[in-house]
Design a protein around this nucleic acid. Structure first.
Lengths: 212, 212, 212, 212
DNA sequence: CATGAATGAGCATTCATTCAT
DNA sequence: GATGAATGAATGCTCATTCAT
């Protein structure tokens, strides 16, 4: 009996924690970290203000708990898919298109969270900042780096290329679009879409821009 | 001779305004917009708190005055240099190297300001946000787009390329580095430098990543 | 037993609200609305500054909540007594003496509040101003008007008299004294007292000033 | 020469003083003493903020200078007219009608100033408050008291009446109307006018309210 | 005397956090 | 664990007053 009760209680606790964190992410994304209030978050989560402090040490703790609980899962999903793809598909073009599509999709679906990170990270202490960016970056680019390193060794890509740099270059090509369109939600630069951009970028990445 | 007096006073006023704005930019960059206090800014500027309100309507006004006074000038300098180069230099590689170097340099020297914009823009009203991003983006990329459009017409670059996209792709390649290293000041990804990165990126942009 | 808890909490809440409002009335009366500070009021009420905002929206809200909670009750008491008297006493002189005494007493006991209203009402918005004056005036004079109208119909008072005007004339006779002595607390005009004034005024009101 | 210059300068100075005081009265009347700012007053007067301090010690000094310069003149005019009338007219009814009309007219034309006094006097120090109320009261009622005292001695008014009280009773009858209509500018009590009220009040004052 | 920029004390209001119930 | 009233430090902004020009 006590075992089940304890287990059930733990599950409930974990559930409540996620519920609060999801509310926090939502409110942070909408108002920015500093303008979001604990009262806001409590209202969105359907709990009392004081209850939040049973699950999180303080407001900062809410913020730095978001990546682990909310950012990490979707990135891990993508990463897993990429590792699978890398072993199956022979054609680099096809694989990079898939990677790029998955990558931009994750960013776009979680633009709210990245907006939070952007607005709040500068105010965090350097150590915490580095810890969380390291998580995000390695999750996001790790699999791509590994794949590119393999392909360089196989001779598919130029032998003198640096796989870490290649990975960043490829991913970076989408940054201007993601930043403006999805994170900052600026709309003046709008006569394009990702389905058109992604093949162009991948082609440029593989073949270069020169004519001949 | 009211003229001289007036002129002298205007110059002083303008000087003081810049002094306060520079202090604001500095403090915003260090602490983020919301955590920066007027008292901080006044102390950095060497004026009394109340004096700030002789030059700016309120704290928001300080923020949105920064781009015009601080971001725009260096970008204009670079833009002017590019237009000069475009008419002189024939070799695209050389020109793109110069462009990329200038571009990353401007970002790096004004990383503080971009950090402010990134953390504060999401909390601004959409209209103000769009207005300021439009300024920054078109200043930053306009000249590059023009150059690429010319080169596409000349047949130097692939005829099927879109100059707007090309410009964003090239600039984007440096984003991961600028974001992590200069804006977020994360140091874990530090075994590289711009002198090494820039030629690699330009080469990739021109020739592609494939081996053959 | 949530019922009792809820009821008890409500009573406490209401109690605290009254306590704060009483403190506000006191401080407003002593210093005037604008010179009174929230810190003052909190100190007088024995609560923290922030607590005041759990019960009132802002400083203005404190002001406009005063009439309903503080002015109205004593006026209602007097009004009730008058209605009772009107049915019992036949003699107009006796009744008007009682009315006048009650009326001046209410004003004098709540002079603080009327001082607040006088000094703060001009700065309120016209709509709010009118709303609150209407409350005060009709409470204060309504019963007297009704009585006078009856007596005019009975032929006790001149048939050509207007009961609304009569009521205002009678009440007005005490205004110079109330204003100077109780509201403005000017003491130079002090060789008189209400016990002496009231019969004189009532006599004048009933018989006129002429000798014959 | 110096004499004339000095005289002219003095006249100019006096002129400027009045101009500032008039602006202050206007702004105080519109916003209340506390909400009026020196900048407001300076703008209305067409001078620089600092200049005001060449003519007045501080903001309070502006307030307490208003009665002497602005309230007193119109009251003196009325007082003079009354003294003239008192010697000419035999009929008390006629004279009191004239007095009452003049009195209410002065109040109505200077309602702004009286509004200032009402809103600001409570915040003044008792000594200053008393000084200025004494001025206003004796100017306003002095002549009426004198007249009534004479008429009592002549046997026109009841011998047992107190002229000071009579004067206050008569004047007080108009207070409810002046306060609500002209000072507080409340409009809900509006189906009357002074031409109708004044004769009613004077008749009541002379003959009383009783029927017989 | 006139000016108006500089000053800084003063205040209303917000909000993260605590804790008695 | 849950609640939400109480707390009080922190902060943006105002404005009377001063003073160098």
């Amino acid at each position: 009996m006590p075992k089940i009760t304890t287990r059930a209680r733990r599950a409930l606790t974990e559930e409540r924690r996620k519920q609060i964190l999801a509310a926090a992410a939502q409110v942070f994304a909408a108002k920015g970290f500093e303008r979001a209030t604990i009262a806001d978050i409590a209202r969105h989560a359907g709990v009392a203000e004081g209850s939040i402090y049973n699950y999180f040490k303080n407001k900062d703790d809410l913020l730095i708990s978001i990546p682990r609980q909310i950012v990490t899962p979707p990135i891990e999903t993508v990463t897993a898919r990429l590792q699978l793809l890398a072993t199956e598909t022979a054609e680099p073009e096809q694989l990079l298109l898939t990677i790029a599509t998955a990558f931009t999709t994750v960013f776009r679906q979680n633009a709210d969270v990245f907006r939070i990170l952007l607005s709040a990270l500068p105010t965090l202490k350097p150590a915490a900042r580095e810890k969380y960016m390291r998580q995000v970056v390695s999750y996001a680019i790790g699999a791509l780096e590994t794949y590119l390193a393999q392909q360089i060794q196989c001779g598919v890509f130029r032998r003198d290329a640096n796989p870490q740099h290649l990975a960043r270059f490829l991913v970076g090509m989408f940054f201007p679009y993601i930043m403006l369109h999805d994170i900052l939600q600026v709309e003046f630069d709008a006569d394009w879409d990702y389905e058109q951009i992604i093949p162009e970028a991948v082609t440029l990445f593989l073949r270069g821009a020169l004519a001949a």
